[in-house]
């Protein structure tokens, strides 16, 4: 099962290598990883999407906690939370299909952020289901390139 784990770490060089090394050294899976500074500039947040049975997830959480530079580990999966990912998609945009692409963009509340005579570049944000549905519709039209940010997530409420 997929888990989204939010990890607060010291904002220092080498911390990302420690976390990445932990996952590779112990054979854990990383599906996506997102790192950025928090409101406190000495702290960074990593959002890690991983998968495995309960025993593996328990080990991942414990092993992360064991790293000296890790301040807090929080598995968001079990509770109510919001997940978002942004994707940039470059699609073939010929005269014949430009209107259809724009319709899809409109329906999904996506945005065309760059236009060339042959392509549109589209920005879309959402949860996994929405993004997958969007990409599925664009696929027959011809996707040239996709760049994804990886998931970020936040618990709901206070």
């Amino acid at each position: 099962m997929k888990h989204t784990i939010s990890v607060l770490v010291e904002n220092q060089f080498g911390v990302l290598a420690r976390v990445a090394g932990l996952f590779s050294g112990r054979g854990f899976n990383i599906e996506s990883l997102n790192v950025a500074e928090t409101m406190d500039p000495t702290v960074s947040r990593m959002t890690i999407v991983t998968s495995g049975h309960d025993g593996i997830i328990e080990q991942i959480e414990k092993q992360l906690n064991k790293l000296i530079n890790v301040i807090k580990v929080h598995d968001l999966t079990a509770e109510s939370h919001i997940e978002r990912e942004m994707v940039l998609v470059k699609v073939n945009a010929e005269a014949t299909n430009r209107a259809e692409i724009l319709r899809i963009v409109d329906i999904f509340r996506a945005k065309v952020v760059d236009v060339t005579p042959r392509t549109y570049t589209i920005e879309i944000t959402g949860d996994e289901d929405k993004l997958e549905a969007f990409l599925k519709l664009l696929k027959p039209i011809g996707i040239r390139e996709i760049v994804r940010t990886g998931k970020v997530a936040m618990a709901r409420g206070g």
């Binding site: 060089f13 080498g14 290598a17 420690r18 090394g21 050294g25 000296i68």
Partner: peptide, 14 residues
Amino acid sequence: IVGISRPCTKHNYL
């Protein structure tokens, strides 16, 4: 050596 020893130390520093 900080990179090399990372998986075989409890912690390390540069």
